[in-house]
C-alpha cells in the first residue's frame, strides 16, 4: 500500500538581492517518488540537492519564502499541499512522524523524557494518564533503551547522543504512525552508536510494517538499511531503484561518479577526477542539469532527459541510461 506519493514536486525560494532584483532559486525541480508500507526508501544526495527540503515539504512544513508552484504530495491518499496547519497538525506526529539530525536540541530541556513522551500522546489524543505512561515506557523498551522505567525520569541533558536519538525515535513512534521520515538520523553519531541506532530503527520499521523515508548523504547507510534508493541532484531525482541494482549497475553518470568517489572504489580503481560545482539554482540551465559535469554529455543533453527504465523497478533520468557505460 502506498503511504506517501510525491509527484512532480517543485519548490522555489524568492529572495531579493543587494541590487534589489527579485531572484528565484529553483530548489526542487520535479521530484517524484513513493514510499509504501513495509519499505525503507533512501533519499541520497549531496549538499543542496534538496533532500531535506523534500522531507519538509512532505511534512507540510515549508514556510515562505519557500513556495510550491507545482506538484502534489499525497499521504494516505490525502493531498498535503495547501492544507491549513490545523489539518496538518492532526497528521504530523500522529500518522507521519519525523526524526531529525540533532537529537539533543529536539528534546525539551525542561521536561523529563517520560513526560515528553506522555505529552506527545496527550496532544494527539491517543492516550492519557497511566495508559500513556505505560505506552511511553514500552516505547523506550522498544527502542532498546536499557532500564526504561528509570529513563522515564531522566532529563534530556543526562542522555548521550545515541540515547537521545533513541528517545527521539521513541517520540516519533509513540503514536503509532504509518510513516517515518528520518532526516540524517545518525549523522554526527559515532560509528559504533550509529550502527546500533540504525539496527533499532530498521527492526521497528520491519516489525510494525511502517514506511520509512531515510534521508542521508552516507551511501553506507543506504546500502545496508534501505530497500530502495532515490538519488537526488540539483532538486531532481536522477536515478531510483532497488538498492542492490543501483549499486551494482548505476545507470546515471552522477550515480556512477558518486559511487566511484567512495574511498573503497578509489582504492580498487584509482583516482577518477570527480567533483565540480552543482548548477546555480538561481539560473538553472535547460535540459540535463548534470550536463556540465558529465563525461558523456552530447548535444542530446540540451533536451531534458526522460526517466529511462533499465529494469522494471530501476530507472535513471539520462538519455543514455539504457546503454552500457
Amino acid at each position: 500500500m502506498t503511504l506517501l506519493d510525491v509527484q512532480d514536486l517543485h519548490v522555489e525560494f524568492v529572495a531579493r538581492g543587494l541590487d534589489n532584483q527579485l531572484r528565484i532559486a529553483r530548489a526542487l525541480n520535479g521530484v517524484s517518488f513513493t514510499v509504501a508500507a513495509g519499505e525503507v526508501v533512501g533519499l541520497v544526495g549531496e549538499t543542496g540537492a534538496g533532500k531535506s527540503l523534500t522531507a519538509l515539504a512532505a511534512m507540510g512544513l515549508l514556510r515562505p519564502p519557500a513556495r510550491i508552484p507545482r506538484g502534489s504530495i499525497r499521504f494516505e491518499g490525502q493531498e498535503i499541499i495547501g492544507q491549513p496547519d490545523r489539518v496538518l497538525e492532526k497528521i504530523r506526529g500522529r500518522r507521519m512522524a519525523m526524526i531529525v539530525q540533532s537529537p539533543l536540541t529536539s528534546l525539551d530541556p525542561l521536561k523529563r523524557v517520560g513526560d515528553q513522551l506522555v505529552r506527545m500522546q496527550r496532544v494527539h489524543g491517543t492516550a492519557r494518564g497511566a495508559a500513556a505512561r505505560a505506552k511511553a515506557e514500552a516505547m523506550l523498551a522498544a527502542v532498546r533503551i536499557p532500564d526504561p522505567a528509570r529513563r522515564m525520569q531522566a532529563w534530556p541533558h543526562e542522555l548521550s547522543g545515541g540515547m537521545a536519538q533513541r528517545v527521539l525515535i521513541a517520540m516519533a513512534l509513540v503514536n503509532d504512525p504509518a510513516l517515518i521520515i528520518a532526516d540524517e538520523p545518525t549523522t554526527g553519531l559515532d560509528v559504533t552508536v550509529q550502527a546500533q541506532v540504525l539496527d533499532t530503527l530498521r527492526d521497528i520499521v520491519a516489525a510494525r510494517n511502517l514506511g520509512a523515508l531515510v534521508i542521508t548523504h552516507d551511501l553506507g547507510v543506504v546500502a545496508h538499511y534501505c530497500q530502495r534508493v532515490a538519488v537526488m541532484f540539483a532538486g531532481q531525482i536522477i536515478e531510483d531503484g532497488p538498492v542492490q541494482q543501483v549499486f551494482a549497475r548505476p545507470a546515471h553518470p552522477y550515480t556512477q561518479a558518486l559511487i566511484a568517489s567512495t574511498p573503497g572504489r578509489i582504492a580498487q580503481l584509482g583516482w577518477t577526477l570527480t567533483g565540480g560545482t552543482p548548477p546555480d539554482l538561481y539560473n538553472l540551465p535547460t535540459g540535463c542539469l548534470y550536463r556540465d559535469r558529465c563525461p558523456r554529455a552530447t548535444t542530446a543533453c540540451l533536451a531534458p532527459p526522460p526517466r529511462i527504465a533499465v529494469s522494471d523497478s530501476h530507472g535513471a533520468a539520462c538519455h543514455f541510461a539504457g546503454e552500457a557505460a
Binding site: V191, T192, Q194, A195, Q196, D199, D218, L219, G220, V221, V222, A223, H224, V243, Q244, F247, A248, I259, T262, G264
Partner: peptide
C-alpha cells in the same frame, strides 16, 4: 574489531558481522 564491524561499507553486497559493545 568492534569499530571495524560497525562500519557500513557503501556496498550492499558486503555482509555485516556486527560485534556489539
Amino acid at each position: 574489531q568492534v569499530l571495524l564491524s560497525a562500519h557500513l561499507p557503501p556496498d550492499p553486497l558486503v555482509k555485516l558481522r556486527r560485534h556489539e559493545v
